[in-house]
Every structure is written in C-alpha cells, then in structure tokens.
Amino acid sequence: MSSDPFRTLGLAPDLHLDRGELERRYVELSRASHPDHHALDADAARLSELLDRSAAINDAYRTLADRFRRAEALLELRAPGTLDAHKQLDPDFLLAAMELAERVATVGDAGRTALAAEVDALLDADFAAIAAALDAGDHGGAATRLHQSRYHRKARSDLRSGDSR
C-alpha cells in the first residue's frame, strides 16, 4: 500500500486503535467528502477530487478495521519493503498450512464449528505474535508471521463461505 491509512483517517499509527474512534473519524470524514454532499456545489474537477478522497477514506477504513491488515499497514509505515522481503516461508509451516487447507476443503457440517474454533485460535496466536514482534521492533519477524497468517485467514474465510446450508 502506497498511502498511509492512519494519516488518511487522521489517526495515530497504533496497532491497538480504539474501534469507536475509528468509526467516528470514518463517518465524520465521509460526511465531509462524500460526492453525494457536493453533487451541485462542486465543479467536475472538484468532484473528481472528492471522489478520490472518498475512495481513499473508504479504503483506509477497510484496512484499519481488519487487525491483520492494520498490522500490515503499520509495518509498511515503520519499515517500508519489509513485507515484500520476507515472503519466504518455512517448509514445515507450508506443509502444515496445506494440511489445514485440505481439512477445510473436506470438513463436513459436523466438524465445521470445531475447526473454525481451531482456526480462530491460530489467528489469535498469530496476531499476538505479530503485536509482540512489532512492539519489540522485530520487523522481519512481524512480516513473516503476517505472511503465515494469510493462510489462516484464507482458511477462516473458506470455512465461512462453506456454511451457507
């Protein structure tokens, strides 16, 4: 991500930001720049600017509302390029991730809730480790764990789309 979502929303870069404050800032800024509120009083150039600004606000909110994407944004801010530099993951981890994906793909209705809880626990552990690494200034460690967490996030979302019936 090239721009800084914290700055877009006027918030201090903090992994543990206050959700209420995030919502408040988001609505306040949206009210100010949403094209709907300027449909008649702005010219084409200004409208296009407002459109970009609104899009930036929406995109920043979406990033910051998700704890993992928030951590990614924070890491990019503190140590640009670290995320890209740590894409290589441990083969043992990849093997475990593949097994997990397999279990998600084949789980029946009976086991789904238990598996979801298991994945949730993995995600919580990931987040705790990322937060600790960021606190300790271990940017490489945070980056690696963020990459790992993507597999768990994918598993979680696959489980969710599976429970439609």
Binding site: V27, S30, R31, H34, D36, H37, A39, L40, D41, N58
Partner: peptide
C-alpha cells in the same frame, strides 16, 4: 430522499 440529499436539502443523511 437521496435526490434531496444530493441537492443539499438533507445533509444529515449519508449513504454508504
């Protein structure tokens, strides 16, 4: 109602 918002008649409403 949305038309009213667009013409500035109702600034309180925000549609996302």
């Amino acid at each position: 109602i949305q038309a009213d918002v667009l013409t500035g008649g109702n600034r309180a409403v925000l549609l996302l």
